[in-house]
Amino acid sequence: MASQGTKRSYEQMETDGERQNATEIRASVGKMIDGIGRFYIQMCTELKLSDYEGRLIQNSLTIERMVLSAFDERRNKYLEEHPSAGKDPKKTGGPIYKRVDRKWMRELVLYDKEEIRRIWRQANNGDDATAGLTHMMIWHSNLNDTTYQRTRALVRTGMDPRMCSLMQGSTLPRRSGAAGAAVKGVGTMVMELIRMIKRGINDRNFWRGENGRKTRSAYERMCNILKGKFQTAAQRAMMDQVRESRNPGNAEIEDLIFLARSALILRGSVAHKSCLPACVYGPAVASGYDFEKEGYSLVGIDPFKLLQNSQVYSLIRPNENPAHKSQLVWMACNSAAFEDLRVLSFIRGTKVSPRGKLSTRGVQIASNENMDAMESSTLELRSRYWAIRTRSGGNTNQQRASAGQISVQPAFSVQRNLPFDKPTIMAAFTGNTEGRTSDMRAEIIRMMEGAKPEEMSFQGRGVFELSDERAANPIVPSFDMSNEGSYFFGDNAEEYDN
């Protein structure tokens, strides 16, 4: 993207840094990872977990959730003011799984939030270390993106479920800051804005008074975040219109849905970061690795190297396929839920299948599930090659597409044709070009129609051997075009429920 120079890199967003050079960025990201790792080690000690239990991804998720809940100030305040039966607002906890007599047992633990905050700050040299908290939120978000298709949420806001490739980060909490905003897809931002506008339509006082002023500035800020994701002048001009509207209503909703559809071809720039579970960072720190000293990046080879040398386990339900569970977590670790499966298959070195073909449910185990038949197995999170994460949407291309997802959002900077089903997408653009945004709409449609099938995206960008740390010898991959490109292809993934 041309304006790259004016933006802070995501590592800076990730670490609240002012302008830093590459070495400083690597050190501050490393410091953040160190903090998460030290916190995780301490929690495993508190909970008396064995090494194996500490490497269980379900335990990692519970521990991450506990610290996120302990620092969720708004919710904590709300819980104190609106006490609900049987919930102690000062405590947080969740299921911890232990191996007892050759069987997995679930144990519900409860801790004072104050105590968890103390352990977290102690692991982070006394700081609140917001960057580390956001990092864990993005890992949870990436896992949700890989596990669930947001059909219901899309339909509720009037969008087409086939636009799911635009929904990265749709389950990120509001408090995820600049680093969170960077990884949100165009569809996620559109959905947040539509929800806001709908509230304004239904509630006369939404934009009024002292609160209304705050609401208005939040609305304009979200519009600017979305505008910054678009790469064409016409899309940005249309966002200006939406932002400046005196009284946002149905016309703005129409414009936003139009823009979301246009992003299936004229893709937005959305950041991709490899955020790993805390149970990967903990053992690495415990083994003596100093992330701050060595430096770390979320968008280069580092996460690949770390996963190459990590042992992570997962509980497996009786009829689940461990290899499929591994694929789910591998995609989440690489922030690749909406990437082209052919690119992923090449990088991973084994075939990556669409969601609907995987015999696996989510990673988390519900409290009512029976533990008797639970097994555990090693997650295979290694890769054959590594590639640089991208934040450009890439230019655009036609490809055989599917009944489910009709476009992709690249996660890796790797040369390819970008699949999208042009006739299906263009069919949504018939007729409606009147109104105050008509010239911009016409211009956007013209650009979409001009998108050429034979153009290559990320020209000359390749993948790298894991021994090639400096990215000196790019390998331009070859793809098996007979395979499906979309992950949520004609899909039956479970729906995400809060």
Rank of each mutant, 00 (worst) to 15 (best):
M1N: 11
E14A: 00
E14Y: 01
D16G: 14
D16C: 08
G17I: 06
I25E: 02
R26P: 01
V29K: 00
G30A: 14
Q42V: 06
T45W: 06
K48V: 10
L49Q: 09
G54H: 14
I63W: 04
E64Y: 12
R65D: 10
M66S: 09
L68R: 06
S69Q: 07
F71Q: 09
F71L: 10
F71Y: 15
R74G: 04
E81S: 09
K90Q: 15
K91R: 15
G93V: 05
I96W: 08
V100Y: 14
Y111R: 00
I116G: 06
W120M: 10
W120Q: 08
T130Y: 02
A131Y: 01
A131T: 04
T134H: 02
M137D: 06
W139F: 14
N142A: 10
L143I: 14
D145M: 09
T146K: 08
Q149N: 06
Q149C: 06
A153N: 08
L154C: 10
V155P: 01
R156P: 06
G158A: 13
M159A: 02
Q168M: 11
G169H: 10
R175A: 02
G177R: 07
A178T: 10
V183M: 09
V183I: 15
G185T: 03
G185Q: 10
V186E: 05
V190P: 01
I194K: 08
I197E: 00
K198I: 10
N205F: 03
E210V: 02
N211S: 10
N211M: 15
T215I: 05
R221Y: 05
K227F: 09
G228L: 09
F230C: 11
V242A: 14
E244A: 10
E244V: 13
S245R: 02
N250R: 03
L259Y: 03
S262P: 04
V270E: 06
P277F: 06
G282T: 07
A284S: 07
L298K: 08
L298C: 07
I301G: 07
D302M: 01
Q308W: 11
Q308P: 00
N309Q: 12
L315S: 04
H324F: 04
H324D: 12
W330M: 08
A332Y: 08
E339W: 09
R342M: 13
V343N: 14
L344G: 07
S345T: 15
F346P: 01
V352L: 15
S353V: 11
Q364W: 02
S376E: 01
S377R: 14
E380F: 06
L381D: 08
L381P: 03
R382L: 07
S383Y: 02
I388Q: 04
S392D: 04
G393W: 05
N395S: 14
T396I: 03
Q399T: 06
A403R: 13
A403V: 09
Q409F: 00
Q415E: 00
Q415V: 13
F420C: 03
D421G: 00
K422L: 13
T424V: 14
I425A: 14
M426S: 08
F429R: 01
T430S: 15
S438L: 00
M440Q: 10
R441I: 11
I444G: 04
F458A: 00
F464P: 15
R470V: 00
P474E: 14
I475H: 03
V476C: 14
E484L: 00
